[in-house]
């Protein structure tokens, strides 16, 4: 195994172990989407019927519609949380250790993003299993096809988190990120309502939603869960990942917090 893969494996394994050890984080990561699925969606079910739009081939209930969006939400929260921890307190020391390695820094940061993504995928699969237990099952192969989609969307959201936490000093706590990044991205997307519904109330809002990379992450996941590929969403997610990654690598300051000023 080459040195690069050795480092990748170690970083991903460490992240997984840390996550499994942190029971409260694990629980809240699961409870959050379940609350949306079981309570919010049940309440909304009567108010919002979803007609037949791709990739669905029949009428679906609101609970079914919302599942891919909640998978995206898990990754959105996780991406922001793990990237924030890279830049601020919790992980700053271990990042310093990482960055004094002889391997290229860009590779090590990429490994970190991939590790965060792996953790988010673990959460998504547990959530999908629970959703299935509640009677919301996907086509069997969908569970397999969704994996590459989750890798891409997880990387994209992690890179966005790293970009934001490296460049915007004001957003140094999770509450700030939640108000100014997570909520707007989540609500202005196709996670909770299809874009055509949005267009009925405001075409401008619909256009904003269509430009939101999170919308494309959700659609990529949604189509993959139904065994198909949304090519446009795929292109959007990959392009957004590339832009966010380059920005994050440029903006990341390895010496942050090291010098008392």
């Amino acid at each position: 195994m080459t040195a690069y893969l050795v480092a990748l494996r170690a970083i991903v394994l460490r992240e997984m172990l840390r996550f499994v050890h942190q029971r409260s984080r694990f629980l809240s990561a699961l409870v959050r989407p379940l609350v949306w699925l079981v309570i919010f969606a049940a309440g909304f079910r009567a108010a919002l019927g979803v007609s037949i739009i791709p990739p669905y081939q029949t009428y679906i209930t609101y609970e079914v519609y919302i599942v891919p969006g909640l998978c995206g939400m898990i990754q959105l929260f996780n991406g922001m949380q793990s990237s924030l921890s890279l830049v601020y307190d919790q992980e700053m020391g271990s990042m310093r250790l990482l960055l004094t390695s002889r391997l290229p820094r860009t590779w090590l940061l990429f490994c970190k993003l991939l590790a965060g993504t792996a953790v988010s995928i673990l959460q998504v699969y547990v959530f999908l299993a629970l959703a299935a237990a509640f009677g919301i099952a996907m086509p069997p192969l969908g569970y397999l096809y969704v994996l590459p989609a989750l890798v891409l969307s997880g990387l994209m959201l992690g890179a966005l988190g790293l970009l934001i936490s490296s460049t915007i000093r004001q957003l140094e706590n999770f509450a700030g990120v939640m108000n100014f990044v997570i909520f707007p991205m989540f609500f202005m997307s196709s996670a909770l309502y299809p874009l055509w519904k949005m267009a009925e109330s405001s075409p401008l809002l619909r256009d904003i939603c269509a430009a939101n990379p999170f919308t494309h992450a959700v659609e990529l996941i949604r189509f993959a869960l139904y065994e198909s590929v949304n090519l446009w969403a795929l292109i959007w997610v990959v392009a957004a990942f590339a832009v966010f990654l380059v920005g994050a690598l440029i903006g990341y300051d390895p010496a942050r917090g090291l010098i008392r000023k």
Partner: peptide, 11 residues
């Protein structure tokens, strides 16, 4: 220690 070794590419 083995985590650190892996960061250096050692396994």
């Amino acid at each position: 220690l083995s985590y650190f070794a892996a960061l250096q590419g050692l396994s």
